[in-house]
């Protein structure tokens, strides 16, 4: 059981990273970025190309890879969100366009890097460490630590800095924020950049677990949405907790059900949460004036 929880925490951290990034964009624009999973995948593939294939040193290589994903996220904004202008909230068009972008990213990656999954080096080597009586891979430990660090960073950014304050303000109302002299669009661009960078980091953390390849994040991406919803979309704390919770629930249920159903269970939980309390764990359900 303890092992299950440990591996659940690791996957849960990944889901939490995905949910956090999805949430940053959702809270300021009201849209869910359906290309997010592909951004994560690109993070891993860029690292593969830059570090493994071209032999660049690890740390600068990682930074460049993640920064590149951030840039791709900006391109994503201009191609799939900006064209809607003020009409963004009127339809689900953004869903289709981000979905389309994701499909394009995935298939271009497939063209460039082929369909065979590749091995991806993990952090910290292969020897098991012992923590709290359970054997754990150094990589898993790093996943937990890095996720926690990023989550804390984001929460600190949102709560304690002026930029974070401006981001939260944009999430509440674009027009009122503009009245402060703040360009809502610039804030959204910053959010896309951040979301892309976090996606890149997540990609590098997942790849050693799942192998790197164009298809690596297809299902994980959807679970990221699920985690965000379970925790309460629009809420960073919710995203973090939702991710961990989903990971643990999934891992524990594996003790009782065939592993192949893992994904089905995760989605079932997501559907259940949407049906019962769409606001998620930390969401607030209140009646709004029509």
């Amino acid at each position: 059981m303890l092992e299950a929880i440990e591996s659940g925490l690791v996957m849960g951290s990944i889901y939490a990273l995905l949910a956090l990034a999805i949430n940053i964009i959702y809270s300021t624009t009201g849209i869910i970025n359906f290309a997010h999973a592909e951004l994560v995948m690109l993070g891993a593939m860029f690292s593969l190309a830059i570090i493994v294939n071209s032999g660049a040193p690890i740390i600068p290589g990682l930074i460049i890879a993640c920064a590149l994903v951030g840039v791709v996220a900006l391109v994503l904004y201009y191609a799939t969100i900006k064209p809607f202008g003020d009409r963004l909230g009127n339809s689900l068009g953004w869903l289709m366009t981000t979905l389309g972008a994701g499909i394009i990213f995935k298939n271009i990656a497939q063209l460039i890097w082929g369909t065979q999954p590749r091995a991806f080096p993990s952090i910290g080597g292969e020897s098991l460490k012992t923590v709290l009586g359970i054997k754990i891979l150094p990589h898993d430990l790093w996943v937990l630590v890095i996720t926690l660090a990023i989550a804390l960073f984001i929460m600190a950014l949102f709560d304690k800095t002026v930029l974070g304050s401006a981001i939260r303000a944009t999430a509440h109302s674009h027009n009122t924020t503009r009245l402060m002299g703040i360009s809502a669009e610039k804030i959204i661009l910053v959010c896309f950049l951040m979301s892309g960078i976090v996606a890149g980091i997540a990609g590098n953390l997942i790849a050693p677990i799942t192998f790197a390849g164009a298809q690596m994040t297809s299902t994980i991406g959807l679970k990221g949405f699920g985690a965000a919803i379970i925790g309460g979309i629009g809420n960073s704390k919710g995203a973090f907790v939702g991710g961990l919770l989903l990971g643990i629930l999934e891992a524990v249920s594996m003790l009782y059900v065939t592993p192949g159903y893992k994904d089905a269970i995760a989605f079932f939980i997501m559907i259940a949460v949407i049906s019962i309390k769409p606001g998620g764990i930390f969401g607030v359900a209140y009646e709004t004036k029509v």
Binding site: V162, S165, A166, R168, A169, H172, T176, M180, G181, I182
Partner: peptide, 22 residues
């Protein structure tokens, strides 16, 4: 603006700071 439109999830201080963003 009409209806005041203060940022309800920000403190009074944070609202003022946002007002002074420039």
């Amino acid at each position: 603006p009409e209806g005041r439109q203060i940022f309800p999830q920000h403190t009074v201080y944070e609202n003022l700071v946002l007002g002074g963003y420039l």
